[in-house]
């Protein structure tokens, strides 16, 4: 798919998920009933524009409450999104993924960009560790501690900045924890200039979860083995450093469609029937 079309879809998806536009000026978040439904991507529910709930925040909230509640509803929604779309959500629908893509488009340090480096492969397992330990285990064991939201989530930090701009009381309340979170956000945003989607590659627990569905999701990459010449054009253009012709179902593939655009017609991204590769 053409990169401009994807950018347009990402912009529309971000605007739809943050359609409470007046919140950006008043500093008040939406209380609409739509917030009982989780959005598929990472979009903090404390963002002044958010009209849906963050799935990771909702998951941790259920697990770290006064009594442990198995979050059937949130887990059901996550599995539903994963089975239908897999990590296409990361490539097209996630607002924080879109923010990283916009930063990566800045052309000033184009020559310094790196696709992969030594240790890149091992670092990618970090997101699974964060999913299990920070999102599931710690909130289940320590009451009222949504660890990922509290200490890591950069989407929440962006929300905090937007709220602080609109509401001076929130601005006055920012302290040490915010400095920590702002530092995490800053590192991720600076890294985004040089590496495509660093947060999605190494940290995002939502991407880790959806990646598990890339092998079986209904929307997948399909390789036509009869016409594929294994020229390597798809692997060279992949921002996530995946080789789609060899491993179209890789958990790292965010289904951005760049490979399909570069290919001679042997790759197809869309609804794939049955067991076709």
């Amino acid at each position: 798919m053409d990169n401009k079309k994807r950018t347009a879809i990402q912009l529309v998806a971000t605007l739809i998920q943050n359609a409470n536009f007046k919140g950006f000026f008043t500093g008040k978040i939406s209380e609409a009933p739509t917030k009982s439904v989780c959005v598929p991507g990472l979009n903090c529910y404390s963002c002044p524009g958010a009209i849906g709930a963050c799935p990771i925040g909702s998951l941790q909230s259920s697990l770290s409450g006064l009594h442990i509640r198995i979050p059937y509803y949130v887990v059901g929604l996550l599995i539903f999104f994963g089975v239908i779309l897999g990590r296409l959500i990361c490539g097209f629908l996630c607002p924080f993924g879109f923010l990283q893509d916009l930063i990566y488009m800045i052309p000033i340090f184009k020559k310094q960009r790196v696709r992969t480096f030594r240790g890149d492969g091992i670092l990618r397992y970090l997101k699974y560790f964060i999913l299990v330990i920070c999102v599931l285990l710690i909130p289940s064991l320590v009451r009222f501690t949504p660890f990922f939201c509290k200490y890591i989530c950069p989407s929440g930090t962006v929300s905090g900045i937007l709220l602080a701009i609109a509401d001076h009381k929130i601005l006055a309340a920012l302290g040490g924890q915010f400095i920590w979170k702002a530092s995490v956000l800053g590192i991720i945003l600076v890294m985004s200039i040089f590496i495509a989607r660093p947060f999605c590659r190494y940290i995002c627990p939502l991407g880790a979860f959806y990646g598990l569905f890339n092998k079986i999701s209904i929307v997948r990459l399909k390789v036509n083995e009869e016409t594929c010449t294994h020229c390597g054009a798809c692997a060279r253009c992949c921002p996530m450093a995946v080789d789609p012709s060899k491993n179209p179902d890789s958990a790292e593939c965010i289904r951005c469609g760049k490979c399909v655009h570069e290919c001679n017609g042997s790759l197809h991204l869309g609804f794939v029937k049955g067991d076709k590769k």
Binding site: Y45, C54, G57, C149, K150, C153, T157, F178, K181
Partner: peptide, 10 residues
């Protein structure tokens, strides 16, 4: 989701 999550915003 209808209340500002203080942990989330830091």
């Amino acid at each position: 989701a209808a209340k500002i999550c203080l942990e989330c915003i830091g």
